[in-house]
């Protein structure tokens, strides 16, 4: 019943609007006011551009200023400081251009609106002006290019030797991480070896696999370089850690990497933000299917000592899943038991 009333009301409203429009048109025809070339509408429109200019810039400045802390994310990595600086330098330059050009664009229509008897200035070209506004933007852009290039090549440079390696793998719809274990060397993998338990497809013919561990929570040391080795096993995903200014696609069949230095522990960040619940998060930013929006991974950044302690407490994957010892070649079984911290073959 209510729906029908709603529909009837809507129809009535449309009919009224139509009638008003028709009457307005007819009145105009009678008055002949739409025959005159330029009426008051021209003045109104010109004025509205001025209103838009002031109102628009007002809102823009007000929001940008008062909500600054709300829309800027705190930064927690070394290179993140660099990219943020680049961002704000770009903002300074672009903001200036944005304001000046938009100002002129809305001021000119107001200033040079049609006036009876006025004639526009015939001003078809000026090579000098064209040259100036080709070369000046080119120079400014070159500065931004070289600045950006420098930052980019630092970020994408080869990771330091001593970097902590963490393998991070995306699948529908979660992330899984693997650490190299005490031997600091990640074992091989093969996608054909993946099954319901061995999500990584770890290859136990490789002795580096024996002590690899896959924790529930990701821990990273503060102040030390960390190298993410990124891969995906089904479709594209993308590792995005907003506070670390880190993003890299995870591609099936093509491992990628990104290294960085976390500069604030989770506790530091909690203190800074006054939010005891704060956690670093990793999200997926490449569309990957129905669960795309739910691929959350919590990252904990520890002080280095805490991290080492945590690292040493982790049990190798093999020791949690001892029946995979069967896949270890006979000549390596002893070593596997040793590295996995197991006493004997499971029965």
């Amino acid at each position: 019943m209510f729906n029908i009333l709603l529909i009837l009301g809507a129809i009535l409203l449309i009919v009224i609007l139509l009638v008003v429009f028709r009457v307005h048109t007819l009145v105009n025809v009678m008055r002949g006011s739409d025959k005159g070339k330029i009426g008051t509408s021209n003045k109104v429109n010109a004025f509205l551009f001025l209103v838009f200019l002031l109102g628009g810039f007002g809102l823009f400045f007000w929001y940008s200023y008062t909500h600054f802390d709300y829309y800027t994310l705190p930064v927690a990595s070394e290179h993140g400081v660099l990219t943020d600086n680049l961002f704000w330098v770009t903002t300074a330059i672009c903001g200036f251009v944005f304001i000046v050009t938009n100002f002129l664009l809305f001021y000119f229509p107001f200033r040079y609106q049609y006036k009876e008897g006025n004639k526009a200035t015939f001003y078809p070209d000026n090579s000098k002006l064209e040259l100036i506004w080709t070369i000046v933007p080119a120079i400014v852009l070159s500065i931004l290019i070289f600045y950006g290039w420098k930052v980019w090549s630092d970020i994408t440079d080869v990771a330091p030797e001593e970097a902590e390696v963490v393998e991070i793998m995306g699948y529908q719809f979660a992330w899984k991480t693997r650490y190299p274990g005490k031997d600091k060397s990640l074992g091989n993998y093969d996608f054909r070896l993946i099954d319901a338990e061995n999500l990584f497809g770890m290859d136990f013919r490789d002795k580096a696999s024996f002590d690899d561990f896959s924790p529930r929570e990701v821990h990273l040391p503060k102040g030390k370089p960390v190298l993410f080795k990124i891969r995906a096993r089904d479709v594209l995903h993308s590792v995005f850690a907003p506070h670390f200014r880190l993003k890299m696609d995870a591609v099936p069949g093509m491992p990628t990497r990104f290294w960085f230095v976390p500069t604030k522990s989770t506790q530091d960040m909690r203190d800074e933000l006054g939010n005891p619940e704060f956690n670093y998060e990793i999200a997926c930013t490449e569309i990957c299917g129905r669960g795309h929006f739910s691929m959350r991974l919590v990252v904990v950044v520890d002080e280095p000592e805490e991290y080492d302690k945590w690292y040493n407490e982790q049990e190798p994957w093999l020791s949690k899943n001892p029946h995979y010892l069967a896949k270890v070649p006979n000549n390596l079984k002893e070593l596997a038991l040793l590295k996995a911290g197991l006493d004997k073959m499971p029965r």
Binding site: N42, A46, P109, Y112, T121
Partner: peptide, 15 residues
Amino acid sequence: VFNYLTTLWKGNIIF
């Protein structure tokens, strides 16, 4: 953009 702006400059603009 600059050329558009200069076109508007000192025009006799009809909206």
